[in-house]
């Protein structure tokens, strides 16, 4: 594995130079939670675990916070507040400034064919523009290909659940099981041997703003998946704990 975890760091702490990766070709990339103070100081700005990737020559601080700050390219689950003349206004988290989603930022949308959304509708979108002093801008289409790539208004039966930002990040990892330590979804879907009664069919949409939508035809399935996710998040369950909780949920479901 190219990603390695370092020690816990506190804001303002001096970093041990041996922890900073070096690469012959790539420049050093700083991720969230670190700040470069010229000429040569790297200082953590949040408390968390220092993590490095030697392949990409990058380092960042893994921290779990409650307040979502939009970053470009984050997938997010937003709620529609109201419609403006040429865009929709959505809220990413309660009591923050709304983000705007242009009417034409949907797959195949023109002035006449744009989707009509009602207030309160959940939308799965990507942050297209996130500047510090501006309201964020969203899009539901990949501007390079013109395809939706799974983004768009969320319809169909299902429910959104609140999770912590760190857990949302772990769920979104390409290998969430190995790197993020989250296996409840696979266990519930019956992809893990040794768990009977799995094989539930459901779909999820994870937003980096700490919301996850679980959709399924059966309401019981949605509730079981949502509870498994929230329990794993709130109680910090490990793999064994997750397995035990999923077994308990599946037993209760019968």
């Amino acid at each position: 594995m190219t990603t390695s975890t370092g020690p816990l760091v506190l804001p303002g702490e001096a970093l041990d130079p041996s922890l900073i990766p070096s690469h012959p070709k790539h420049p050093l990339r700083l991720g969230p939670g670190l700040r470069h103070i010229p000429p040569s100081d790297i200082v953590p700005t949040v408390a968390g675990q220092l993590t490095t990737n030697s392949h990409k020559n990058s380092l960042w601080v893994e921290a779990n916070s409650n307040r979502y700050i939009p970053q470009q390219n984050d997938p997010i689950l937003a709620t529609l507040l109201r419609t403006a003349p040429d865009s929709y206004l959505l809220t990413l988290s309660p009591h923050t400034a709304p983000a705007s989603l242009p009417h034409l930022a949907f797959e195949g949308a023109t002035k006449k064919t744009r989707p009509i959304l009602s207030p309160g509708q959940l939308v799965y979108a990507r942050v297209a523009l996130a500047n510090k002093h501006m309201d964020p801008e969203l899009e539901c289409v990949n501007p390079a290909t013109g395809k939706a790539d799974g983004l768009g208004p969320i319809t169909g039966p299902g429910c959104a659940f609140d999770i912590s930002l760190g857990f949302a990040r772990r769920l979104l990892m390409a290998r969430s099981r190995e790197e993020g330590g989250v296996g409840v979804l696979e266990m519930l879907a019956g992809e893990e041997p040794g768990i009977t009664g799995g094989g539930l069919s459901f779909e999820t949409a994870v937003g980096r703003n700490g919301r996850v939508w679980v959709g399924s035809e059966s309401a019981a399935t949605v509730i079981v998946v949502g509870r498994a996710l929230q329990e794993t998040d709130r109680n910090g369950l490990g793999m064994e704990g997750q397995r035990r909780f999923v077994k308990k949920l599946l037993r209760e479901m019968k």
């Binding site: 207030p119 309160g120 509708q121 039966p157 429910c159 079981v224």
Partner: peptide
Amino acid sequence: PSLNEKQFVAQALQENLRLDG
């Protein structure tokens, strides 16, 4: 809460289910 959540809570209660089991 969003429209989706409101509808789901109401529908689940019709099926004798609560969100926290």
